[in-house]
């Protein structure tokens, strides 16, 4: 098997399109998982068990079922119930929802790690509940968990090729389309693999330096 640079060059237009889609999914999925994860984490601490219990049930269910199964379910089953999104939207929602159940645990640990004395000081100063969360608890929790959240973004990046399963035109799907047209597999797949390394490795260094700076 020979390496053909011409095949690499031919793949590049598809590659850039795919990279853009992958990064879009990653950014939107991260935003969704960070937001939803915080909502779950606050739900874990709700005063009423009629909130806590369903939140636990939903997040445990989503966390313990495979992302690929969830993708297929949302993409193939929801339309039968009259809910239809594009593959891209479905993929982003699925990956964001899936990872929100991990980030929820990260938030929970970060919130639990804020000393009780901080809550007590806020009470002693009569700060309202929402103020206490916004200005006292969350800023301290977020600082502690930023590296852990960063690691989940990297994990999410590496899970984006699953979206090829529902034909989202991200990096892996673009390479498959290229190979289907040219019967050359090694070059497009290698380029995609290298692209993941080139994004994920510097990102992991960034997370590690963040860890050192914050701890």
């Amino acid at each position: 098997m020979n390496w053909d640079w011409a095949a690499v060059v031919d793949f590049l237009p598809r590659f850039w399109d795919g990279l853009l889609v992958t990064l879009q999914v990653l950014v939107l999925g991260s935003v969704l998982s960070f937001t939803l994860g915080l909502v779950w984490a606050l739900g874990f601490r709700a005063p009423s068990r009629f909130v806590r219990w369903p939140v636990h049930a939903v997040t445990e269910f989503v966390r313990t079922t495979p992302l690929l199964v969830q993708l297929f379910f949302l993409f193939f089953v929801l339309p039968e119930w009259g809910v239809q999104f594009s593959a891209m939207t479905t993929g982003t929602l699925a990956i964001g929802l899936h990872y929100s159940t991990y980030t929820a645990q990260v938030y929970r640990a970060g919130i639990d790690a804020v000393p009780a004395g901080q809550w007590e000081a806020a009470t002693a100063l009569s700060l309202p509940r929402h103020r206490t969360w916004l200005t006292v608890i969350l800023p301290q929790a977020l600082r502690r968990i930023a590296p852990a959240l960063g690691n989940y973004v990297i994990a999410m990046l590496k899970d984006t090729p699953l979206l090829a399963g529902i034909s989202v035109l991200e990096l892996l799907q673009q390479s498959r389309l290229e190979s289907a047209a040219t019967f050359q597999y090694i070059e497009p797949l290698t380029v995609v693999g290298v692209a993941f390394v080139l994004i994920a490795y510097p990102a992991s260094l960034l997370v590690r330096s963040l860890e050192r700076r914050l701890v």
């Binding site: 000393p115 004395g117 901080q118 007590e120 000081a121 002693a124 200005t135 006292v136 800023p139 301290q140 600082r143």
Partner: peptide, 14 residues
Amino acid sequence: IGMVFQHFNLFPHM
């Protein structure tokens, strides 16, 4: 009512 605590409980990020 104001309270001063044994371990100060200042907000460390402010």
